[in-house]
């Protein structure tokens, strides 16, 4: 049996260069004839907080869904910590990885959704401990203890036995954040987490996410329309249009001095009239 050589391992230069948390390589995503992402290459370093901005339909959410394996890749590869997620190159061929292998990687990734997606057949506490107990194999006592700490940290200590549908949208989203964190993910995907919330509740959810960003080293990939939040939390912003990265910069540069015409137009439209800048508090 010939040993297969992984071209990417070989390309490691032999140095201890940090392996990126997420790496897209020639990723293509089609829905029928509609090409959403084409030849997409980018990396997210460990601990990075990257915000994806761009008009709707630009493929931002699709990127998160591909990382979470909610959509299948049409072509190319996604690597998580250097490990191929859904497909790998074996003997020069692109082959799908086993469900078991995918699951091992998926466990390190968490996601918070626009519509919360809490399980209505479980209480708040049951929602949070479900996966830690049944997927990670934690004891119920251990998982419950951690869940209570998380509920405390998202400001809902009294809601453990409430039903999700008895909670307001903002509360539900905070439970969903706690549920994702209970899995101790290395990577957290935030998909327009405040878009379904009343404007006055947006702040409390963003405050919690800011706190998580400040107190953990979880890698975050964020899709949001909240530019101030993007500026506060992320250390890199990527502007998407037509399934491609138009511009990539630190938030300071992106929001005060965008280089690309498309970015300028987009930010102008999103941030309203005026000079198109947002303040630094």
């Amino acid at each position: 049996m010939p040993t297969t050589t992984d071209p990417h391992a070989a390309a490691g230069d032999g140095t201890a260069a940090a392996v990126p948390a997420i790496r897209f390589e020639n990723v293509e995503k089609r829905f029928g004839d509609n090409v959403v992402l084409k030849d997409l290459n980018f990396e997210v370093a460990k601990g990075d907080r990257v915000t994806l901005i761009g008009p709707s339909g630009s493929g931002k959410t699709t990127i998160l869904r591909l990382v979470m394996t909610l959509e299948s890749l049409s072509d190319g590869y996604i690597y998580i910590d250097g490990e191929p997620l859904t497909h790998e190159l074996r003997d020069g061929k692109r082959v799908a990885r086993s469900e078991k292998a995918q699951k091992q990687i998926r466990k390190r990734i968490g996601m918070v959704f626009q519509q919360f997606n809490l399980f209505p057949n479980m209480t708040v506490l049951e929602n949070i401990i479900e996966a830690p107990v049944h997927v990670l194999g934690q004891s119920k006592a251990e998982a419950t203890k951690r869940a209570m700490e998380l509920l405390e940290s998202v400001g809902l200590p009294g809601k453990a036995n409430a039903h999700p549908l008895q909670l307001s949208g903002g509360q539900q989203q905070r439970v969903a954040i706690a549920r994702a964190l209970a899995m101790d993910p290395d990577i957290l995907l935030l998909d327009e987490v405040t878009s379904a919330l009343d404007p006055e509740i947006v702040g409390e959810v963003l405050g919690i996410l800011r706190h998580i960003a400040e107190t953990t080293d979880i890698t975050m990939l964020i899709v949001t329309h909240e530019m101030q939040f993007a500026r506060d939390v992320s250390n890199r912003v990527m502007m998407f249009d037509g399934g491609r990265v138009v511009e990539e910069a630190t938030p300071d540069v992106m929001f005060t001095n965008p280089q690309h015409e498309r970015t300028q137009a987009f930010l102008h439209a999103v941030l309203g009239s005026g000079d198109g800048h947002i303040g630094t508090h």
Partner: peptide
């Protein structure tokens, strides 16, 4: 579908 997606995001079998 959001319910299915949440179970995938939590790595449930």
């Amino acid at each position: 579908t959001g319910q299915w997606e949440a179970t995938t995001a939590l790595s449930m079998s």
